[in-house]
Design a protein around this nucleic acid. Sequence first.
RNA 1: GCCGAUGUAGCUCAGGGGUAGAGCGCUUCCUUGGUAAGGAAGAGGUCAUGGGUUCAAUUCCCAUCAUUGGCUCCA
Length: 648
Amino acid sequence: MSTGSSIELVFPDGSLRTFPQGTTGAQVAASISEGLGRTALGAVINGRQVELQRPIAESGTIKIVRWDDDEGKTMFWHSSAHLLAEALEALYGQVKFGIGPPIENGFYYDVDFGGHKLSDADLPAIEAKMLELAKNNSVFNWYLVPKADALAYFEAKGDHLKLDLLQGLQDGDISFVRHGNFTDLCRGGHVPHTGHIKAIKLMSVAGAYWRGDEKNQMLTRIYGVSFPKKALLDEHLLRLEEAKKRDHRKLGKELGLFMFSQKVGQGLPIWLPKGAALRERLERFMRQAQKEIGYLQVITPHIALKELYVTSGHYEKYGADSFRAIDTPSEGESFFLKPMNCPHHCEIYKGSPRSYRDLPLRLAEFGTVYRYEQSGELHGLTRVRGFTQDDAHVFCRPDQVKEEFKKVIDLIFKVFSALGFTDFEAQVSLRDQEDRSKYIGTEENWAKAEQAIIEAAQEKGLHTVTAYNEAAFYGPKLDFMVRDAIGRKWQLGTIQVDYNLPERFELEYVGNDNERHRPVMIHRAPFGSLERFIAVLIEHTAGEFPLWLTPEQAIVLPISDRFLDYAEKVLNQLNKCDIRASIDARGEKIGKKIRDAELNKVPYMLIIGEKEVEAGAVSVRKHRQGDVGSMSIGRFSDLIAEEINIKI
RNA sequence: GCCGAUGUAGCUCAGGGGUAGAGCGCUUCCUUGGUAAGGAAGAGGUCAUGGGUUCAAUUCCCAUCAUUGGCUCCA
């Protein structure tokens, strides 16, 4: 409660202190410690980010934020976007500004250059201008103006974008922020002055539709990132380099896993022998895991009549975005490439009468599906036009939904842990809260499905986040996001509850009351798609796959060609022990062979020479670790078997 | 689909109006070497494709295709 002359502020640690009315965030920070006073970038008061120099108007919660706080970075990058705008105006004059928000790793500004075309080559000059302007230590002044004045200001400036933004704002006072020679419409939350921005890197230029709507004008978006210290920028750029080294497109090529062919078509991955073998091992692993918990494997064709997808609702929803229909020469039939496996599985369900005793019926298929994706969206293996889902559909009674859902969660846990994804979170994807026209099915069924997901996730103790407008058009989802070895988030597995398809396909079972009932369907794919999963696995492991998956587990390195015969014998024995291996028979020195094997990320190198031949042994060297000593092949194969068992 | 960039040897890339270069890889020869690069020689490219400008285009211009960073979309 604030009195006339003082305010009370609650700090993040729960402590409460009283300050005179009109105290600024900066004064509060300085009162805590000299260090905080120096490093503070902003304040979060009652959940709102505000500048340190603003007097605090009312009592409430306060958090002084620094660079290390997320809010600190947000304010820092937001301020940097203003600085970018100032630089652009200084360099190019008549520039219209859209929005310039902070993002996960930096900031961007959407601008309209009129006729001028900006390219990457212009970025260094803009960067230099920003750094130059930053040195002015221009204070970010936040102030209120009447809406009429705000309109007049941007009217005079001819900035139709800001005017458009203003239309959407409530009448009354509008907040502006001014620093140096630049004034912008802005909600607020800036660092004290531009001098804090010490290192800037403008990353790229891209097109972006105004307000994200493709019917609107396309603006030029400039992406950038900035830091309070040069060293932090260098570190950031190093991280990007590291990510680049792990890029699955690069590693996939280097390791001979997959390729694309212009003649085959964009977005259609081709699996090379090593990649295909890796993929098969993943499939085998999944088949086994599913078999253990009662899934039945099925196989369905790659095309189906249009009517199937009319029934399922996919035609109405995605017909226009599908590959063109395949028409038969004389019968006038119209087929579509399979974009989903579920309609086929529904037909399997329908193929014979079902009793409540048959449920749950769990049909699994590594189903290859084809979807027309816009050309600009294709990306390596993560976004393709033809891919294989580790798909399955659980048909069950309404009373079994939650239990079945939980079993699927367990399966996903098992898969993730076997593959080393220990850090993940689950996202409950629900409908758009306003626009429900995008979805099919009754309100009642949606409510039931959403409830089942939320409860199952809770009972499994999952840490979940809720995302609206992320549901599939026929039902809500539980999506699993894993965090990879360098901290990036990827969406992998998904589980979806569906009351709608059973309805549309008129699926039934006979209950113990001898009446007909409608089953519920659960769609699920722990990997999501094999393509995408392998892409993520490549980037997560940097191409150093778990031993049980890796295409080449060992390589035999003879010291000279005098030992080639023995090398062949060793290879034979390895094959017998089911160890995937090859021989490096080149006329190179051992150092070179070792180097190449290390670079190729082969887990084990078996070096053989005079000593090994005499002892009937191999000298084992482990990738990244070095020499682990000499042993018999039997011992080596035990070693490998042991390592595989620990990991799965 | 839209905006920007890119496309030269198997890979990574340099070059530049007068029909091309490096490193790695590959082949052959010499070397027979003990835990991250031994030496030499050689093969390999219609400079993405199609037009245009020019005496001459891989180089400049246009279009197409593909890749790529974004936007939109994502069953």
